[in-house]
Structure formats: C-alpha cells, structure tokens
Design a protein around this nucleic acid. Structure first.
Length: 487
RNA sequence: GGUCGGAUGGCCGAGUGGCUAGGCUGAGCUCUGCAAAAGCUCCUACAGCGGUUCGAAUCCGCUUCCGACCUCCA
C-alpha cells in the first residue's frame, strides 16, 4: 500500500498526503455526463484523467469504490429557474421521448469511453433512478432550516447557510462580491436571495419528466442528484470527489452546501478538479460550438485535422499533459504525440524477442521507484511517460545486443511495462490486435522475402515490401530479422 | 468589473532556489543492398522590468499578454 501518494486538494489549494478515511477502502465519486448530447473530447479528458487516478489507486493496493453518475433529469437550460429541462427540450427537437434521448446518449457515452479503454465505474447510478433519495434529502435540508418552498419549488437558502458555513470554500470567492456580481434574473424571481438555487422545481403542465413530491409534481434541481447518490453509495463523507474544473464554482459549491446542510459534513475529504481541453487557447465547450466529437477525431473528418487519430493515440496525448494543466488541442500536437506513442508501442512489441544475458547492466528496481515517485506526485503521468522513454531506449538497446539484462531483469521489465503502461496508463497497442492467421501469413511472406534477399533478388524483395506497404503493413529489417507492423 | 490560474526552446509539454525532463520537428553520423526502424551527436528555453539571495526560470513586487469562473457546460 502506498503511503506516499500526494493529491492536490482544491479545498486547501495545495498538495496533501493522501490518507483515506477507512483504509484500504477508498470512496471515489466523479461527476458524470448530462446525457442530452454527444460527449465531446473535453468531457472525455476528464473521464480519462479519473480513469488514470482510479487505476493508480487500484495499483497502489486500495480497494476502491468508484461511483460515476449519469445525470438524466433535472438539468436546467438557461437561467436557473425559468428554463426547461434539457431532456424535454432536446426531446422536442428530436421528436423523441426524453428517455430515448437519455438512452441514446448514454450508450454513445459508454461506447466512446470503451474506445478510450477506461475501466467502468463500480456503480453508475442515474438521477431518475434516485428521485426518492433526492426528495428525502430535500426534506431533510428543509427540516434543518436551510431551504424554503415557494409555489411548489424548493430553494436552498444560501445567505442563511453562509452564516454558519463557508459557502465559497471551494473557490475562495468573497460572498459579497458574488452577491453584487450575480446577474439580475428579472422580476419573476421567487427566490429570497440571488444566490439561492433550486433543489426541487415545480413542473409546468407541458413538462414530461415529472414526479410527485411533498411540494407537488416536479423534478429535481441540478445539484441534488450528486449529493443524494454519493451519500447513498459512499456515505456522508468519502475520500475523493472529482470533476471538471468548470463544475467547481457552481455545481460542487452547491453540492457541498447541500451535504453540509443535510448531513453536517463536507461530503468529501479531497476535491480534485481536472483542467480544460482547449482549442486555439479557448476552452472546448458545448455552448461555444468548438467541441470535437470523438468520432471526428478518429476519422479525421474535421477542418482542423489532416488525418484521423486512434483512440489510444489520443489517450496518450491526454496523458502526456498533467490533469491540472490546460491541454491545447491541435493537429500538430496530436501528430507529435502519435509518433511518440508508436515509438513506445513498437519498443514494447520487441519485449518477447529480447534475450536474457548472464549479467545485467540495468537496475529495474530503481526505475520502478522513479515511476512510482512520478505517479505518487499527484498522478504525474507526463513525468511517468518521460521515464518510460528511458525504458524504450533500454529495450531497443537490449534488442540490438548493446545492453545486457539477465533473466530476472527481463521479468522485471515485463512486469513494469504491464503494470505501468497497460494497467496504470491504460494504454494498449491498437495495431497488434492481430489474429493468429495473420501472424502466420506474415511470417511466411517475410520468409519468402528473406530468400529473395539471400539470393540478392532485390527486385522481388522490394516488390514484397512495397506491396505490403501499400496494403498498410510496414516491414523493418534488422540483424535480428524482420519485424512488421501496421502503418 | 470581481475572483482564480497561466506565460517554458521551432511545436507540445514536465519541473522548480544551484545538478539545467520527455515527446515531436530540423541537421549530421552509425547500421543497412536500398528503405524503414533503432542508436549516437547537435539546436540549452523559461514574457518584460525591478528586488531577495553566494546563486532564480524557480521566491517577492510591478508591468504586459492570455485563459477560466462569476451564466448551461467535464
């Protein structure tokens, strides 16, 4: 069990030693998508980041319960209290039932995350499946005196809450400034305070997604589902709550307030926020219209791309930046990391061909400690990848018989690659998923070409190589023989 | 306007009081029938201006520029 893991906690704005509440158990809650449209790459980055975090916690020996919700109800469009439910609105546009929208985009979300090779969460609860839990939570908040009802809608009383609690604990803003700077919402406002937000919203007659409640027929407010579901599956207080940075100021601030008002505790010990994916320096977002869809990226069907990039190459690109830094998305940057990714995978593909020597010139235990040190430092995957390229050099050198490693070292090397590249970074070689027949066929063709070369029939050997190149297979000759890969 | 965070070599991106990641690109070399791959070598940067220090890209201050949040968004 790793006791040297350090995590940047948004609450304190500094790195803290990770000490789980009930080791070796770790409760991890990540805000999932609102499934009313396709997930874009920015969304994916967050889920890939937390996938890395989840995987490293598992590697470190923790028993992790990873909860990631699906928000499929109650997310308002536009101004907080007068907007339509996003699902109902989208359903009208697409002439579908709201739950058809939910189903469609939930499946799309899962498909994309599978391509990115993310592990599924332990529990993936939906907001619509937890209406009664949300109602119970709202009731308790009212009973505790922190919410009030107006005409079938229940609001959280931020001003009252602020008297005994630090509402802006996550963002360190001044409450007074927020009060002065919050946009005036117009004369129809029923709220007592301008920062108050809805816990439960009265449904208009035309509203399709609706549930009975003590305050009449309505639907839950945006933030309450995460509070209710994290509480149900992870308890009043759990270890890590995560999400994109854009959620900190509003969604997570309100989640903390709700849990504090209901259960008298901050729901999570560590709050982690992943930074934004940007395009030309500006945040990729649904509303800005600069969102890349994963599909466009994989196929290259986008004005900013010269070609498509594989999901694993994109995952590698994301992991080459630290999760708390913005990552700028460009064709050039993708091209660069794709080449690096291929270099890494090509080296790893040589592992089965390496031969053990009697002695060893490499200390893999020391390398492993460097890997662990990188990841223990707030999941610093870019540093881990930098160290990995040191190993690439070693593998190539051993393959060329320029460096010696013994049988034990070879075993350690295999374990290291398996643990850190495949299990922790969650990468896989998307070009070597061949079937055995192809392998045999290629071996045969390579043998034919070797014979042509041996008799200096270079016309034939080049014909074979060039033809295979055109079919998408690349041959590389070396003293050890010829290896091939898809190009 | 308020709050917060950034500015690193041709590009992407780590790091951080002295030892000056890594990937990509470019140049040269080795290997090779040729090619590809691989290896080696070279291109040594931290927005600007002050200050603290034996020493700062790293700490402090100011300036300029950029972004995020404050309004739905991972």
């Amino acid at each position: 069990m790793s006791s040297n893991l350090v995590i940047y906690n948004t609450l304190s704005r500094k790195k803290e030693i990770f000490e789980p509440i009930n080791p070796p158990m770790v409760g991890l809650y990540v805000c999932g998508p609102t499934v009313y449209s396709d997930v874009h790459l920015g969304n994916c980055r967050t889920f890939v980041s937390f996938d890395l975090i989840y995987r490293y916690l598992l590697y470190s020996g923790y028993k992790v319960r990873y909860v990631r919700n699906i928000t499929d109800a109650g997310h308002l469009e536009g101004d907080r209290d007068e907007g339509d439910d996003k699902f109902a609105k989208k359903a009208k546009l697409e002439q579908l039932e709201p739950m058809e929208i939910v189903q469609k985009y939930t499946i799309g979300f899962h498909d994309v995350l599978r391509l990115f090779n993310t592990l599924p969460p332990s529990i993936e609860p939906t907001a619509t499946g937890h209406i009664s839990e949300q109602i119970e939570m709202v009731k308790q908040i009212i009973a505790n005196g922190y919410a009030y009802e107006v005409n079938g809608t229940v609001y959280f009383d931020v001003e009252k809450y602020s008297k005994n609690n630090d509402y802006t604990i996550l963002t360190n803003r001044q409450l007074e400034d927020m009060l002065n700077n919050t946009r005036e919402l117009g004369g129809q406002d029923e709220k007592k305070g301008r920062l108050d937000f809805a816990l439960w919203i009265k449904a208009k007659p035309e509203h399709i997604m609706r549930w009975p409640s003590p305050w009449g027929v309505g639907f839950p407010g945006w933030h309450i589902e995460c509070s209710a579901m994290s509480n149900k599956y992870l308890g009043h207080q759990f270890d890590i709550h995560g999400g994109g940075m854009d959620l900190a100021a509003t969604h997570h601030t309100n989640e903390i307030a709700q849990s504090q008002a209901c259960n008298h505790t901050n729901p999570a010990k560590y709050w982690m926020h992943t930074n934004m994916l940007t395009v030309n320096g500006a945040r990729m977002s649904k509303s800005a219209g600069n969102g890349f869809l994963p599909r466009e990226l994989f196929t290259g069907d986008h004005p900013l791309l010269t070609r498509g990039y594989s999901p694993m190459s994109v995952r590698f690109f994301m992991l080459q930046a630290h999760y708390r830094s913005t990552l700028d998305f460009s064709n050039e940057a993708l091209e660069a990391s794709d080449k690096g990714y291929r270099r890494l995978m090509n080296a790893i593909a040589l592992l089965p061909k390496l031969k053990a020597s009697a002695s060893s010139e490499v200390d893999f235990e020391e390398i492993k400690q460097r890997f662990i040190a990188a990841m223990n430092d707030d999941f610093n995957s870019p540093v881990l990848i930098a160290e990995l390229f040191e190993v690439v050099r070693i593998i190539n050198s051993v393959y060329d018989n320029k460096t010696k490693i013994d049988a034990k070292g070879l075993a350690q090397l295999n374990t290291l690659v398996n643990d850190f590249v495949f299990n922790i970074l969650g990468l896989k070689d998307d070009q070597t998923e061949n079937n055995g027949d192809l392998e045999k066929l290629m071996d045969f063709i390579i043998k034919l070409r070797q014979e042509a070369k041996a008799s200096k029939d270079y016309a034939t050997s080049d014909l074979i190589r060039n033809s295979l190149q055109e079919m998408g297979f690349q041959l590389k000759d070396s003293k050890e023989g010829t290896v091939w890969s898809k190009s």
